Simulated scan of single mutants.
Amino acid sequence: MNSAAESGQAAGRPLLAVENLVVEYPTAHGPFRAVDQVSFQLERGGTLAVVGESGCGKSTLARALVRLLKPTSGRIVLDGTDIATLPERRLRPLRRRVQMVFQDPYGSLDPHLTAQQIVAEPLRLSGVGDKAERARRAAELIDRVGLPSSALHRRPPEFSGGQRQRIGIARALASRPDLLVCDEATSALDVSVQAQVLELLRELQAETGIAYLVIAHNLGVVRAISTDVVVMHAGRIVESGPTADILASPAESYTRALRRAALDPTAVRGVKPRHLLTTAPEGTRP
């Protein structure tokens, strides 16, 4: 097949298609199904949020998508290739295309490495360039995520939580991925820093066309960053669609309960979803 035909095929298919995905954990009482027959698609350059309460299977799903966990069954089709069951030898060249930003900005960075070394590490593991080239690219990425040049030779304990998360984003971008999975990437940050990180993600997407899959429980974050959303409960998707429609007029009682919690000032953490108060049609506000 020629390159023009291949490009046409790629343009006509989603970047990511998840089909009937199941992830089970062994327990003393038999297998526990954390992700149960989950299916969705994510288009190139799009942003899909996965939302639900703690324990609903969101983080397990995220880890399966980047193959930190091996699914029990189902398919994870990345740009036409099913990566769900690929052995590590065949999976390794594809890992650079899907990267992850973790929830904990304090525990996800090696405290013994400098920021520049942390960001350059994925390049070293992939055999990209020599040491000087990797250092140069790491410095460019650190600058791009809004950290000063003085950050290059400092170590994680010297940074704030928001700065550490920016380093995590720079590290994830080092391999120039097509898809970035953000697993509660702003939940450990205060409100103002959350807003800054979300704005950074939007800017990076506009510049590079990267796609995001955002795992979140905060509906304010979901509304701020995503165009589409899937709602998970007990391992299953119970509702999905355009973010604005789902948050303004949810069809499922579980989604309505999530929205009620988000609109309760005593329950909100992080970015407060005030826009939901104005976008919800009359008669649908809890």
Results as ranks from 00 to 15, higher is better:
151 A>E: 09
152 L>W: 14
152 L>Q: 10
152 L>H: 12
153 H>C: 10
154 R>P: 12
154 R>W: 05
154 R>A: 13
154 R>E: 13
155 R>N: 05
155 R>S: 09
156 P>H: 03
156 P>S: 05
158 E>M: 14
159 F>P: 09
159 F>S: 06
160 S>G: 04
160 S>W: 12
161 G>W: 12
162 G>H: 06
163 Q>C: 01
163 Q>W: 05
164 R>Q: 06
164 R>H: 02
165 Q>D: 10
166 R>E: 11
166 R>D: 08
168 G>W: 09
168 G>C: 14
170 A>P: 02
174 A>Q: 04
175 S>K: 05
175 S>C: 15
177 P>L: 04
177 P>Q: 04
177 P>M: 04
178 D>T: 11
178 D>H: 14
178 D>M: 15
179 L>C: 06
180 L>E: 09
180 L>H: 05
180 L>N: 01
181 V>A: 05
181 V>T: 07
183 D>P: 09
183 D>L: 06
183 D>H: 03
185 A>P: 06
186 T>P: 02
187 S>M: 06
187 S>L: 02
188 A>E: 01
190 D>M: 14
191 V>M: 13
191 V>L: 13
192 S>H: 08
193 V>F: 00
193 V>R: 00
194 Q>G: 07
195 A>I: 07
197 V>Q: 01
197 V>K: 00
198 L>E: 00
199 E>R: 12
200 L>S: 02
201 L>N: 01
201 L>E: 04
202 R>E: 08
203 E>C: 03
205 Q>K: 06
207 E>I: 10
207 E>V: 10
208 T>M: 14
208 T>S: 15
209 G>M: 11
209 G>H: 07
210 I>Q: 01
210 I>R: 03
213 L>Y: 08
213 L>I: 12
214 V>I: 15
215 I>M: 04
215 I>S: 01
215 I>G: 04
216 A>I: 12
216 A>R: 02
217 H>Q: 14
218 N>A: 13
218 N>Q: 13
219 L>S: 08
219 L>E: 08
220 G>D: 01
220 G>F: 00
221 V>E: 03
221 V>Y: 00
222 V>S: 00
222 V>E: 00
223 R>Y: 10
223 R>M: 05
224 A>K: 07
224 A>Q: 11
224 A>Y: 08
226 S>V: 09
226 S>E: 10
227 T>Y: 04
228 D>S: 14
228 D>M: 05
229 V>G: 00
230 V>G: 07
230 V>D: 01
230 V>I: 15
232 M>S: 04
233 H>G: 05
234 A>C: 11
235 G>W: 06
236 R>W: 04
238 V>D: 03
241 G>W: 09
241 G>F: 05
244 A>K: 08
244 A>E: 14
246 I>D: 07
246 I>Q: 06
246 I>W: 11
248 A>Y: 02
249 S>V: 12
250 P>K: 01
251 A>S: 15
252 E>Q: 15
253 S>Y: 02
255 T>D: 05
255 T>R: 02
255 T>K: 00
256 R>D: 11
257 A>Y: 07
258 L>D: 08
259 R>F: 09
260 R>A: 15
261 A>W: 07
262 A>R: 02
262 A>E: 07
263 L>Q: 03
263 L>M: 13
264 D>H: 05
264 D>F: 08
265 P>N: 04
267 A>Y: 13
267 A>E: 15
267 A>H: 13
268 V>K: 03
269 R>G: 10
